[in-house]
Write a protein that binds this DNA or RNA. Structure first.
Lengths: 158, 158
DNA sequence: GTGAAGTTGTAGCCATGGCTACACTTCGTC
DNA sequence: GACGAAGTGTAGCCATGGCTACAACTTCAC
């Protein structure tokens, strides 16, 4: 959804175009980051699911993915196309979806992160069902720094 | 972004339209919820910011809001229009933005939730800056149940 | 091999939430 | 009071991610 890039028709370009750092409010950076995160979240979810399907069932068909996520197959196919564009997956017509090297890496990272978030929520007393559910949304907004902290916290109280 | 509603032209409608519960996979519900959350997140952020501006500066002008969030004023105005549509804010042309009763309530809830999330992150060892930043994204995905757990956890170790 | 059923892909619509460009207030200064 | 700067509003574009409808392909049973 964010399409900041590509735009900015480059200020007049003739006249030095003032190098004014717009004194970007600190809140703005956070805000932008949050908005952008949402754009990768979907790809992360797909990568994770595809990895899961391939690992267990052996096959990741668009229809399976759509059913698991509760969206129409058309939506799934559209997103799969985007996965391909981003170099995370490969898929030949009527032949199922596979992850590229990069896709595998992403999936593994996402999966590990998901577990860590769920574990932390459980550790602070969140009921299992709520932990699973909320983790789904939370995980996409957890920075590496925070992840480290979670990890240390869990380690310490083990 | 989700526009599930309004659609569903109602299945044929002539023939009983099988009451088949599609055996909705549990994952689907979580997924849908996450996707939908994103749609309210923006309104929550705006409500909170407007409340903040009104409380401190006394005025909430579209341009101020835009600057604080790092978006163009046009984008801000568009979202303010949506706030109005949803009955969360009022605004007369060239006269600044105000929150309705409902908007105030939302803002207060969001603010409290934000604090709670930040406090919890800090409590498990996340550095201050990262806590603030990640909370911005996380807060929109924290259920009441989880919020309660956070609250109890913080209380217990106080 | 043929046909029906299921899967896949494409086209086209809608709302959100970014953006720029341009027009129109409003306000402060002189 | 007139003027220019700043703020406001509108229009129109783009990408994402939903959806339905329809067409094309595969598969499987017979």
């Amino acid at each position: 959804m964010p399409q900041q890039p590509a735009h900015h028709p480059a200020p007049p370009a003739g006249e030095a175009a003032e190098p004014v750092l717009p004194a970007e409010p600190t809140q703005a950076k956070r805000f932008g980051k949050t908005r952008t995160a949402q754009s990768t979240a979907l790809l992360e979810d797909y990568a994770e699911l595809i990895a899961d399907l391939l690992a267990t069932g052996g096959e990741a068909r668009p229809t399976d993915i759509a059913r698991r996520l509760g969206v129409s197959h058309a939506s799934a196919i559209k997103t799969i196309a985007r996965l391909k564009r981003e170099g995370l997956a490969t898929a030949r017509p009527y032949r199922g979806v596979f992850l590229t090297e990069a896709g595998e890496v992403l999936a593994a990272r996402v999966k590990a992160r998901h577990r860590l978030v769920v574990d932390l929520l459980r550790a602070v007393g969140v009921p299992a069902e709520a932990a699973e559910q909320d983790a789904e949304g939370i995980e996409h907004h957890v920075s590496d720094l925070t992840l480290d902290a979670f990890s240390r916290f869990l380690e310490a109280r083990k």
